[in-house]
Nucleic acid binder design. Structure first.
Lengths: 348, 348
DNA sequence: GGTCAGCTCGTTAGCGCTAACATTCCCGCG
DNA sequence: CGCGGGAATGTTAGCGCTAACGAGCTGACC
C-alpha cells in the first residue's frame, strides 16, 4: 500500500484530522490551534504560522458540528417556505441565501407540502431539533401565520412576505400601496372602474391587494365590481379571463399576479379584445417574463431580493443582540408601466 | 416570579431539558431515554411509556447536533446551485427537498454567485465543513463540472441536470433526445431546415441541445444554419428574434429554453410574422407559463421534479451503502405539441 | 532585585449524545 | 438447587471542540 510517493493528505486516510493532530504536528496544544482558527489575538505570529502550515499539510477541516455542540450556535438558519417553485418565494429564498452567506450562516430549507397549521408547526419543530439559530418563514398564508403565533418560543423567528399583524416580526412588500397604485393608474387613464382577479382568499397577499384595490375605487367614488377569485395560476387567469373578456363593460382589470395576467391576456386575445385598446390590464410581481408578454405587461414590481435580505438582517439582529425584531418592515412596491394599459375606450 | 400556577414547560426555562433530565423524571438512566428515542427493542413497554411521558412533560427535544457529533452523521445534505430563481433549478431543488424530507434528511443550500471553478470548489468546501453527509450539485456548467472532478473526495457527490461525462455521477434529463424530437417535429412539419437559438456555450445543456439539433438536421440532409447564441433570458430571445424575424427564409426555430422563446414570439409579433403561420417555434423546459403564451408554446418538457427525486435517491444510496453512485441516469424529455408550430409555409 | 502585570500557552472540564461494556434480574434447565 | 443465558437497564468513555482557569515567562517599575 505504501507507495512512498503519495505524501499528500489522501495517504493516511484512516480518519479525518482533528485539532489535536494539527497541534501535534505544529508542536502546540490543540487549544492553540483553536485560538488560531478563531483569531485569538494572544498567539505569537510564528506560532500562528506553524499552526497554519500544519493545518494546510494535513488538510484539516474544522468540525462545525463539534463547535456547534459546545457553543450552542450552529450558524445555520431555517427557512420554511411553501412553494419554492414560484418566482416570488424562489427569489426571496435566493436573497436570503445570499445575505446569509455573507454573514457566515447556512440556510436549511424546509418546504411545506400543504398550507395548514400542522405542517407549519411541524416544519418549525423539525428545524428547531436540527439546532438552527433562527427561523424565517415564507408562507404568506393565513393559517400558516396563525400557526406561527403558537410556535415561536425559544428561537427567533421572522415572517417574510406577509404574516400575522402582530405577535411575529414581519418583513413584507407594501402590498396595499402596490394595489393602490395599480388601481389608481387605471383610474387615471380614464377607466370608470377596475375589475379584479384576486388570489386565493386565505393568502394574506390576496387580501391586502384586494383591500388596496377596493379602497382606491371607493375613494374615487367608483363602482366596486365583485372580484373574481383565482389560484395564482395562468390557467385560472385564462378561465376567469374568458368571462371578463365577454363583458364589454370591462375595460380595466387589476390582476393579483403576473401569471394570471398572462392567462387573461391569452383569453382576451382569443376573444378578440385588443389590449390595451379595449382592455387594460395590470399585473403584480414583475416576473422576468412580464416585459415580453403580448403586449408587455404593466405591473407592480416587488423587490423579492430586497425582502430576503432585509428579513435576514432582522433575524440576525435578533439572534446576535437578543432584542426582539422590529415588527412591520415594509418594502416599497413600484408601478412599472409598459404596454398593457392605455386610455379607456370611448364608451358606447 | 414564581407564580405557582405556571407549571408548564415554560416555567423552568433556564435551560432546555436534556436526556438526563428526562431520565431523572422517568426514574431511568439517560441511556434508556436514548434507547426509547432510537427505538431499541430492549425496553420494557411500561418503561417506554414512562419515558415518553417524561419527554412530553418536559417538552424535551433531542439535540441532533450532539447526536451528529457522536454518530458522524448529520442527516443533512448540501445542495449547491447556481440560480435558484430560474424555474429549472428551483423545481429541481424542490424535488430534492421533498424527497429528502421523506428520507429524514435536511437540505442545506449554497448558491453560487458566479459560475466558475473557485466558487464551486468553495461552496463544496463550505458544505463539507458544515458536516453534510452528501452533496448535490445543480450547476450544468462546464467549468463547474470540471471543478467537481477535483473536489469530490471524502463525501458522496452527485451532479444534477448535467455534469462532466465521467468521474462524477450525473442525473440528467436526456437533453439530446429532447433536442432531437424538437428538431424532428419541425422537419416532419415540412420545414426545410430549422434555425437554433442556443444557450450560453459554457452550459452543458446548451451544447447537448445544440448537438441534438445539429445531428438531426445532418441526418435529414438539411442545411445547418449558424446557431444564434443567447443567455437564456427573454431579452436575448427578443434581440436575436428580431434578426430571425427579418429573414423570410427562416420558417422554423428551435429555441433552447422557453424564456428565450417568449422573447422570440414577441419579436415575431412586432415584425408581423405570424406564428405558426409563417414561423414555427419550439422551446425547451415547459415552464408553467408556456401553455399561455401567444400562441401557446410547443416545447420539450423536462421533469425537474423527477430529476430532483432521482438524484437524491442516488445520493442516499451511496451514503447508506457506500457503493459508488451509478453514473449516467437519464430522465426522458417529452415533446409537448401546442400551437406555436405548424406546417411550413408554401415557399415563394 | 523583587513584584506584579500581561502575554502566551497548556490543562482540564464539559457540551448532549451514542457505543460498548458491565450489571442485575429472572427464567428454565439438568 | 445451582447455573447458564438472555432481556432490561446502568455505567463509562468518548465524539471534536471551546471556555475557564492556571502556569510559565517576559519586562517594567519601585
Amino acid at each position: 500500500m505504501e507507495t512512498g510517493e503519495d505524501i499528500t493528505v489522501s495517504s493516511r486516510r484512516a480518519r479525518a484530522p482533528v485539532m489535536s493532530d494539527v497541534g501535534r504536528l505544529a508542536g502546540v496544544s490543540h487549544q492553540t490551534v483553536s485560538r488560531v482558527i478563531n483569531g485569538s489575538p494572544h498567539v505569537r505570529p510564528e506560532t500562528r504560522t506553524k499552526v497554519l502550515a500544519a493545518m494546510e499539510e494535513l488538510g484539516y477541516r474544522p468540525n462545525s458540528v463539534a463547535r456547534a455542540l459546545v457553543t450552542g450556535r450552529s450558524k445555520t438558519l431555517g427557512v420554511v417556505s411553501f412553494d419554492t417553485t414560484l418566482y416570488g418565494p424562489a427569489s426571496t429564498l435566493f436573497g436570503i441565501e445570499q445575505a446569509a452567506h455573507e454573514a457566515g450562516y447556512f440556510i436549511i430549507v424546509a418546504s411545506l407540502k400543504a398550507l395548514n397549521r400542522s405542517s407549519v408547526t411541524d416544519a418549525v419543530e423539525r428545524l428547531r431539533r436540527q439546532g438552527v439559530d433562527g427561523i424565517l418563514v415564507i408562507a404568506p398564508h393565513e393559517e400558516a401565520g396563525d400557526a406561527l403565533l403558537h410556535t415561536h418560543a425559544d428561537v427567533p423567528l421572522v415572517a417574510v412576505e406577509a404574516g400575522p399583524d402582530d405577535g411575529v416580526a414581519v418583513v413584507a412588500v407594501d402590498q396595499i400601496a402596490g394595489a393602490v397604485s395599480a388601481t389608481q393608474h387605471l383610474l387615471d387613464l380614464g377607466h370608470e372602474t377596475v375589475w379584479h382577479i384576486s388570489g386565493p382568499p386565505n393568502f394574506i397577499e390576496s387580501r391586502k391587494r384586494q383591500e388596496g384595490w377596493r379602497t382606491t375605487l371607493q375613494n374615487a367614488g367608483a363602482n366596486v365590481p365583485e372580484p373574481l377569485v383565482g389560484d395564482w395560476s395562468p390557467r385560472a387567469g385564462y378561465d376567469l379571463g374568458q368571462h371578463l373578456s365577454r363583458d364589454p363593460k370591462v375595460t380595466a382589470v387589476f390582476v393579483a399576479n403576473d401569471q394570471m395576467a398572462l392567462g387573461l391576456l391569452r383569453a382576451a386575445n382569443e376573444a378578440g379584445r385588443a389590449v390595451p385598446g379595449e382592455l387594460s390590464v395590470v399585473g403584480f410581481d414583475d416576473i422576468p417574463e412580464a416585459p415580453y408578454f403580448l403586449p408587455p405587461l404593466t405591473t407592480i414590481r416587488q423587490d423579492f431580493n430586497e425582502m430576503g435580505t432585509r428579513s435576514l438582517r432582522a433575524l440576525l439582529h435578533t439572534i446576535e443582540t437578543g432584542e426582539p425584531p422590529s415588527s412591520g418592515t415594509l418594502v416599497p412596491a413600484e408601478l412599472v408601466i409598459r404596454s398593457s394599459t392605455g386610455p379607456a375606450p370611448r364608451s358606447h
